[in-house]
Write a protein that binds this DNA or RNA. Structure first.
Lengths: 226, 226
DNA sequence: CTCATAACATTACGGGGCGTAACGTAATAT
DNA sequence: ATATTACGTTACGCCCCGTAATGTTATGAG
């Protein structure tokens, strides 16, 4: 048990320069087995022993590569999320629809009953939470963000837009329906959502705004005078 | 071990007509203790033994009333969600803002780190999932749905609206930000979101739509020609 | 070739929490 | 008085996590 400093040689990535080298096959097989178990049983019922059994590996071999269940699953899921493409056709409606479908596709690749308990589990530890966000949350978001940015630059979207808000309004819908499963999220639905956000759902928005100002004097007080 | 049929007398609500009656104080104290532990430790680290300890009760006493951890926590949280009010001032902007804030308030009453793992836990069993939806998911939703319905009836929102979609677009935003905590959801943000959905974010939506039709021939093929 | 190092498989362990069982006691209906 | 059920206490079986111990095997350094 040499005191080698803080860098742990047991972690994925950093191999020591001496001793028997790791069998690279084991890492791959374990990740595949992890995905298989996730698909069949979900995160909650995934046990390390089952993964080891399927991979033809052993528990210690797994713990040599990943510090805990969370990281193992994060690593496995990361292999499923290829780099997000960001279409740039110059057609804002087209690009946004396509972009949202990147979200949808990402969620379809991961079975219901996986993402939520995983996040819940990661949320406790800051470092695991960070990894979760970087690995699973940010990438599809960034793709859509890029398209929104381009649309604003083209002048297709209002320049004073709260980009984060719009991004979340589109992304959250997909997430929400994927999570609760109370309604499907089809290509047509995506299109409707994009249309709604871009075109608005009011029959006469300026009139509504004027009315609101009449009633309240100042639109900022909406929430207060219920 | 009498075979009394399918109705289990051990459940909350149905008391048998003979034998020692339950101490009603215990049920209340346990629910209070459950909420306290939830607030301090979250769902994942809530243990029945800790709840029992705080309530001055015992594990068997708890399991006599609720079949498992899920149901106990669901019952406890239900006591925190009062009946949702649905403002009806005739001002669509005002009502919607107020309505969304019902969502926000509901989520604020429940600490982060509670709802998600609870749902993840409930999702496995259909009956528990149903209880979750009925208790925690539907009520605030129904309130906002009612307001959307009234706004459509007034003619303030387009009659051809996909009500479920709009409802989810507003509700999911709150949920999303509460869950991931990457951005706050303030009263101003709620107002911006409502404004965005009602008024639209495009500078010239009809022009965008026309352009999209030019490019694709048929707007239904948006998602396909990336 | 010899030695240090570390991965490998196998086995076993400590620990925590769930949900239940066993037992004696207390309270209520008939 | 008797049956029934709740109560507290204690203990149990179960499952799974993450680690440790042990002997063996593969590699780099000298």
């Amino acid at each position: 048990m040499g005191r080698l400093g803080l860098v742990q040689p047991r972690q994925e990535g950093r191999a020591p320069r001496t001793g028997r080298p790791r069998d690279p096959q084991i890492g791959r097989t374990v990740l595949d087995a992890t995905l298989a178990v996730l698909d069949e049983a979900g995160y909650t019922r995934l046990t390390i022993e089952e993964v080891a059994r399927r991979a033809g590996a052993t528990k210690p071999a797994i713990y040599r590569r990943w510090p805990d269940r969370r990281r193992l699953v994060l690593a496995a899921l990361a292999t499923r999320l290829g780099t997000a493409r960001t279409p740039d056709t110059g057609c804002t409606l087209c690009d946004l629809n396509e972009g949202i479908n990147v979200f949808v596709a990402a969620f379809r690749r991961i079975r219901p009953g996986v993402l939520e308990p995983l996040f819940a589990d990661c949320a406790a530890e800051p470092e695991a939470r960070e990894t979760f966000m970087t690995t699973l949350f940010d990438p599809p978001r960034a793709a859509v963000a890029e398209m929104i940015e381009r649309a604003v630059a083209r002048g297709d979207l209002r320049a004073d837009l709260d980009r984060e808000l719009v991004l979340d309004m589109l992304g959250s819908l997909v997430h929400y329906r994927a999570l609760f499963g109370h309604a499907p999220i089809t290509g047509d639905q995506v299109e409707s959502a994009v249309e709604a956000v871009l075109g608005g759902i009011a029959t006469d928005y300026p009139a509504l705004l004027a009315h609101s100002r009449e009633v309240a004097g100042d639109p900022r007080t909406h929430a207060a005078h219920g």
